[in-house]
Simulated scan of single mutants.
Amino acid sequence: MVSVKLLSLATLVGAAVAQNTTAPLRYMPFGDSITEITCWRAKLWEKLQGTDWATTNFVGSGKNENACRDTKYDRDNEGHSGFLAINIANSKQLVGWLQRNPADVITMHLGTNDIVQQNKPVDQIIAAFSTLVQVMRDSNPKMKIVVAQIIPMGMGNYNGKVQALNAAITPWAAGKNTTASPIWVVDQYTGYSGSADNRDGIHPNAGGDDKMVSVWYPALVSAFTSARADQVAAAAAAAAAERREMPFIA
């Protein structure tokens, strides 16, 4: 006969496992002003509603509303207008941001300011990306990472450099990819017009926001699915460990 005490313990463990496997995923939109002062985050949140990922918790220190005509969306993000990838990496700013707002999944759209403001070499930008990915993985060894080939500019003569950076991102990501912490590369450049889809030559207008969401979304679903699988595996392992520690009572 199994004791009531043992049954109660097993029930509690089962409840804990169920809670862990359904805990909302934490997602950090990370980047510069193209993440901070645009509305693609609002539209992405709206697209997630009614799906298995509706409870996803957007995380980050930023909470700008941006006049996106949505009073409900989760505004938390780590977009920083004017910031360079190189400076974020060298100043170790992402370390503190992730300490304060841990994440399971992160998107990164960076490099625009490195090119437009300071004409930084592509290899230096890519080196900064490597530093940032390591920070992500130091924060969470199973971080799921989605990196954008960045949108084109509708001003100046920057798109040649943008294309060079975008071309370098694919082999870089392949070299950094791991099973535990995969990197998805999404192409935010192709099919996007720097003039028609940007409101000021740099930041997306409503049509640009829509295009960005359509590119982010499939990769994010894959990243969320992978992160949820980690949650389920961790909960199952914890439950198995609890069962091994339970005394057998006849």
Results as ranks from 00 to 15, higher is better:
Leu6Gly: 11
Leu9Met: 12
Ala10His: 13
Leu25Trp: 03
Asp32Thr: 02
Ser33Pro: 08
Thr38Arg: 00
Ala42Asn: 07
Trp45Ser: 08
Phe58Thr: 03
Val59Lys: 02
Gly60Lys: 00
Glu65Cys: 12
Asn66Gln: 03
Asn66His: 04
Arg69Pro: 11
His80Met: 09
Ile88Asn: 00
Ala89Val: 04
Ser91Pro: 13
Ser91Met: 15
Gln93Met: 11
Leu94Tyr: 07
Gly96Pro: 00
Trp97Glu: 01
Trp97His: 00
Leu98Val: 04
Asn101Lys: 04
Asp104Tyr: 01
Asn113Phe: 02
Asn113Pro: 04
Gln117Pro: 13
Asn119Ile: 15
Lys120Thr: 11
Pro121Phe: 02
Asp123Thr: 09
Phe129Tyr: 12
Asp138Gln: 05
Ser139Arg: 03
Lys142Glu: 05
Val146Pro: 02
Gly156Val: 05
Gly156Cys: 10
Gly156Lys: 12
Asn159Gly: 13
Pro171Arg: 07
Gly175Val: 09
Asn177Ile: 05
Pro182Phe: 06
Asp187Lys: 05
Asp187Asn: 06
Gly191Ala: 02
Ser193Met: 07
Gly194Tyr: 01
Gly194Val: 05
Ser195Tyr: 15
Asn198Trp: 02
Gly201Phe: 08
His203Leu: 06
His203Phe: 02
Asn205Gly: 09
Val213His: 00
Val221Phe: 06
Ser222Trp: 01
Ala223His: 01
Arg228Phe: 04
Gln231Cys: 07
Ala235Val: 03
Ala235Leu: 02
Ala236Gln: 14
Ala237Gly: 06
Ala239Tyr: 08
Ala241Leu: 15
Glu242Leu: 11
Glu245Asn: 14
Met246Tyr: 12
